[in-house]
Design a protein around this nucleic acid. Structure first.
Lengths: 213, 213
DNA sequence: GAGCTTTCGCTACGACCCGTAGCGTAATGC
DNA sequence: GCATTACGCTACGGGTCGTAGCGAAAGCTC
């Protein structure tokens, strides 16, 4: 999570209950106050710990919120629904449901904004949230290839680029729909989006050099 | 911009130079300090105006940054490059170039995050940034339909939904690529993305009710 | 149990920023 | 000239920040 645990050290161990209480209090404060009005003193009071305890474990507001929000995305799964289209729709709907929660909305975007000026924070976001969910894309593609819905990829480099592209398109579209456009990513929208993505994906023999009309 | 101008009133008029100086100073402060460390007092000093002048024109940090960032997107254009693919690639590259600038990165995402908890701010973002650029999608589709690259839309409601979908996919993907994944939206990426989008778009007879594989 | 180590809760502190009020002055229109 | 509004400046109470210092508590090792 936030700090190294160098095996078992001597001395009084850190309270694991405090960690969960602090992260829960952070999400609660995000819901009630939003990012800008959230103060570490308030979070400490909600969690029932001293402010100094909070500062011993997290460097600041950014790092704390990253960890608090990252836990929200751990519940994402990719249930096998029998077809690539159904799998995508399922996971996109899950993703949209998480993003609809107020603690995810205000927390995630604010952290991303701060990360643009903080290399360490950007790496923390990538490790805690992005990379952890990239597995969904990989798993979904592997399934689709087993079913014959997608062709096997020949070039591993091209394969990695395609995964990155899909992840950016899926996550970006849902986030933009939910947070910027402010409209719900409901069943109808997800179906339209999935159709768009699948048709583009089915015949994707693309590489760098290509013809332009 | 930020306040009503009820025709010509009596009294000393507001300095237009102060407006541009303040917005430029805001962008400069965004580059050097980022969102969280930007203070209105600092912006006032940079712009050479009194802090009270700033508060007379903008309600707070959020509204100020929205206006400062919105100006960045006014330079977007849709030059006619002869094909839908080339048009899309051109505008996406322009969009990516703007998003690559540090004042856009930290400012835009922070404002979007704040807007999740502030209905008035969300409306301001939509009016100042989102809707102003939606014209690009409309114009691009109209051109493509004249060229015969896209079928004419029968249902106006479906047509509007498709425009919304495309806008969310394009803007969302570029933003996610640039800000979350932290990788540049360069020529190669834009070509791959455009291919994906076009293939999905070409055969899009979708409506709500549909078959699932 | 004795002793060591680390964490915990608490209090207090200077530093900074916020947003506003009050004042005298400057720039317009009538 | 006069009313009206914007401007620059100063000052203020209120809040948050991040840290330091203290004694007490909770583990581990011997």
């Amino acid at each position: 999570m936030q700090s190294r645990t160098p095996a078992s050290r001597t001395g009084r161990p850190r309270s694991a209950a405090a960690d969960t209480a602090i992260l829960a209090a952070t999400r609660e404060a995000l819901v009630e106050l939003g990012w800008s009005k959230l103060t570490l003193g308030d979070v400490a009071t909600r969690a029932g710990v001293a402010k100094t305890t909070l500062y011993r474990r997290w460097a600041g507001k950014n790092e704390l919120v990253v960890d608090a929000v990252a836990e929200l995305f751990d519940e994402l799964e990719l249930p096998d629904r029998g077809s690539l289209a159904a799998d995508i729709e399922g996971v996109v709907l899950q993703f949209a449901a998480i993003l609809a929660r107020p603690e995810a909305k205000s927390g995630l975007m604010a952290v991303v904004a701060e990360a643009t000026r903080d290399e360490a924070l950007r790496e923390r976001v990538r490790a805690s949230i992005v990379d952890r969910q990239m597995r969904l894309v990989l798993e979904g593609r592997a399934r689709a290839q087993c079913r014959g819905e997608l062709p096997p990829e020949p070039d591993p480099g091209e394969s990695a680029r395609t995964v990155d592209l899909i992840f950016d398109v899926v996550a970006g579209a849902v986030v933009h729909r939910t947070l910027v456009s402010g409209k719900p990513a409901d069943g109808d929208w997800v179906r339209s989006f999935t159709r768009l993505l699948l048709l583009g994906l089915a015949s994707q023999p693309a590489e760098s050099g290509d013809e332009r009309a």
